[in-house]
């Protein structure tokens, strides 16, 4: 995790610092420009004017993993792609989050039974924070996923556990 985490002794009251850090983190989750298949169209729709992901501070789609906090795995992950996906995830700076969007990313979806080349769930490759089911999910559902991620971020603490 980030440098500041885990350097304070347990018992030291850091709730206000926590609150400020989490507030700034969860209001600026920059996603990576990373759409693999058709769910990416819904992700683009979420980023466009009508649904406007900028209202959550997540509108800046970064073109490099170094600047991104969130990887929205929007689409089918093949075995060939899994290697690249893992590498991109490892290039992202801490703290990093992953949303598995759509049936394909969660479990293989329509390729679950007969797909010879599809990873059955992206959680085998990278740790997933929020699952957004749907085929594809509505843009509102992706916004809900980002709000669930914000809820998760707001429970973080920098104190030693």
């Amino acid at each position: 995790m980030a440098l500041i985490e885990g350097i304070f002794e347990p018992g030291l009251v850091v709730t206000t610092v926590d609150w400020v850090l989490n507030w700034s983190r969860k209001r600026s989750i920059f996603p990576m420009t990373f759409g693999i298949a058709c769910c990416a169209i819904e992700m683009i729709a979420t980023g466009a004017a009508r649904f406007d992901i900028d209202r959550f501070g997540s509108g800046a789609f970064r073109a490099t993993p170094r600047q991104a906090d969130l990887m929205i795995v929007a689409g089918t992950v093949t075995f060939k792609m899994a290697e690249r996906l893992r590498r991109l995830w490892e290039q992202m700076a801490e703290p990093r989050y992953v949303i598995a969007m759509g049936a394909c990313a969660i479990s293989g979806g329509p390729y679950h039974v007969h797909g010879y080349h599809v990873v059955k769930g992206v959680d085998q490759v990278v740790p997933v924070d929020v699952y957004v089911p749907g085929c594809p999910p509505r843009p509102e559902a992706l916004l809900e996923g980002i709000m669930r991620l914000q809820d998760k971020i707001s429970t973080h603490t920098i104190a030693k556990r």
Partner: peptide, 20 residues
């Protein structure tokens, strides 16, 4: 070659299970 009729699904590819 995956589209052959007698193709058998792989068990594992570089540590990724085919049927977890």
């Amino acid at each position: 070659h995956p589209l052959r009729k007698d193709y058998q699904d792989i068990v594992e590819y570089r540590g990724l299970k085919f049927n977890p």
